[in-house]
Design a protein around this nucleic acid. Structure first.
Length: 171
DNA sequence: ACAAAGATCCGT
DNA sequence: CGGATCTTTGTA
């Protein structure tokens, strides 16, 4: 139980997304709400989206206003609205020019990326938020989890061979 | 300018 | 299994 402030530093996010996605399991997503409440949620499920070649990654469309943040240095938030209803929370990873990110697909008590975004009260103002400096959203360290499961990523059947990668990680 | 699809969830 | 609901992207 991390009672003291143990925020993950910039360096954590400047590695390969395929290392970071499993490493995030068991760590704490911390949200300081507008009313002053601070809640910690244990991360239980992630997915890696890796670079312009990965057809499931939005950055495969190239550098657009939507994907721009993924091309920047890691340690920031990439959010987008899906189906007009759900804000997907992604953590940008890698050095500048490596457009990769981790989708937070679930946290303890809130399975599913749509439920994560709803519980955290996300909106477009979180686009580009720095996980290193933010007063309202960051990640805190925790002991590595004992056993990590993998599977194909969910909901990306359009991505051809990339849909077969075992880039979903869960506890 | 317009149409289509989307890293989802909920209720029937 | 279909509806909700709206942004992004591709095509004209």
């Amino acid at each position: 139980m991390p009672l003291k402030h143990n925020r993950l530093p910039q360096n954590f996010f400047l590695r390969d997304v395929l290392d970071i996605a499993p490493d995030l399991l068991g760590k704490y997503l911390v949200r300081c709400f507008e009313d002053g409440r601070t809640e910690r949620y244990r991360i239980t499920e992630t997915e890696a989206y890796s670079g312009i070649e990965d057809l499931a990654c939005h950055a495969s469309k190239g550098r657009t206003s939507r994907t721009e943040i993924m091309f920047q240095k890691g340690g920031t938030v990439y959010v987008y609205l899906i189906y007009g209803m759900y804000w997907m929370l992604n953590l940008v990873t890698g050095t500048e020019g490596d457009p990769s990110a981790v989708l937070i697909r679930g946290m303890e008590g809130f399975p599913g990326p749509g439920r994560v975004g709803r519980q955290l009260h996300l909106d477009r103002s979180f686009y580009g938020e720095s996980l290193i400096n933010s007063e309202r959203l960051w990640i805190e360290d925790a002991e590595p989890v004992a056993e990590i499961h993998t599977s194909k990523r969910i909901g990306i059947d359009y991505a051809g061979e990339w849909a077969d990668k075992l880039w979903r990680f869960y506890i």
